[in-house]
Simulated assay, not measured.
Amino acid sequence: MSAQNSAGIQTLLDAEREASKIVQKAREYRTKRVREARDEAKKEIEAYRAKKEAEYKEFEAQHTQGNKQAEEEADREADAKIKEIQEAGKKHQDKVINDLLSAVFDVHPTPVS
């Protein structure tokens, strides 16, 4: 009976070792699969980020172009207005100087009552 008990105990120990190996393999597989899933998710996130960044740059380029055109148009209008003001200043420069000199030198004092 002792040999039979001994054989039964040995069988149980062998089964326990085998179960331990199976559990270890399952843990390794699960760890490996989690790493693969994490790496896969990182790749998907990076691809999504790159796609959105490209879309943003395209959007920015399209709208910046419109702003540049508006800015150039505003610059042209401002330059034309400045030129117009300068020409008007040159045209009436003598009269303005004479009016200023007249105001300074032709004093008409009035008594204060």
Rank of each mutant, 00 (worst) to 15 (best):
T31Y: 14
T31F: 15
T31P: 06
T31C: 10
T31G: 10
K32I: 05
K32W: 08
K32Y: 14
R33F: 10
R33S: 15
R33Q: 13
V34F: 09
R35K: 07
R35T: 06
E36T: 06
A37E: 14
A37V: 10
A37T: 07
A37Y: 08
R38C: 06
R38K: 11
R38W: 11
R38Y: 09
D39R: 14
D39I: 13
E40F: 05
A41T: 03
A41D: 12
A41S: 11
A41L: 07
K42P: 02
K43P: 00
K43S: 00
E44M: 10
I45W: 11
I45E: 10
E46C: 11
E46M: 13
A47N: 11
A47W: 06
A47L: 09
A47I: 08
A47Q: 15
Y48M: 04
Y48S: 02
R49V: 06
R49L: 05
R49W: 03
R49Y: 01
K51H: 00
K51T: 01
K51C: 01
K51A: 08
K52Y: 01
K52I: 07
E53V: 10
A54D: 02
A54Q: 03
E55N: 09
E55V: 03
E55G: 03
Y56E: 04
Y56A: 13
Y56D: 01
Y56K: 04
Y56S: 01
Y56T: 04
K57A: 05
E58N: 13
F59W: 05
F59M: 03
F59G: 01
F59Y: 05
F59S: 05
F59H: 01
E60K: 07
E60T: 02
A61N: 03
Q62W: 04
H63K: 04
H63Q: 03
H63G: 04
H63S: 04
T64K: 03
T64I: 07
T64W: 02
T64Q: 09
Q65G: 00
Q65W: 06
N67A: 14
N67Q: 15
K68C: 03
Q69N: 13
Q69D: 15
Q69E: 15
A70T: 06
A70E: 08
A70F: 09
E71L: 12
E71N: 12
E71A: 15
E71Q: 15
E72W: 08
A74M: 02
A74P: 00
A74V: 00
A74T: 00
A74E: 01
D75T: 02
D75E: 06
D75G: 03
D75N: 04
R76N: 11
R76E: 08
R76T: 07
R76P: 00
E77S: 12
E77M: 15
E77R: 15
D79T: 02
D79Q: 09
D79L: 10
A80Y: 04
A80Q: 11
A80F: 11
K81N: 07
I82Q: 06
I82A: 12
I82D: 04
K83C: 13
K83M: 12
K83W: 10
E84L: 02
E84S: 09
I85D: 00
I85V: 00
Q86Y: 05
Q86P: 00
Q86G: 02
E87F: 02
E87Q: 11
E87H: 08
E87I: 08
E87N: 12
A88K: 13
A88Y: 08
A88H: 09
A88P: 02
G89K: 06
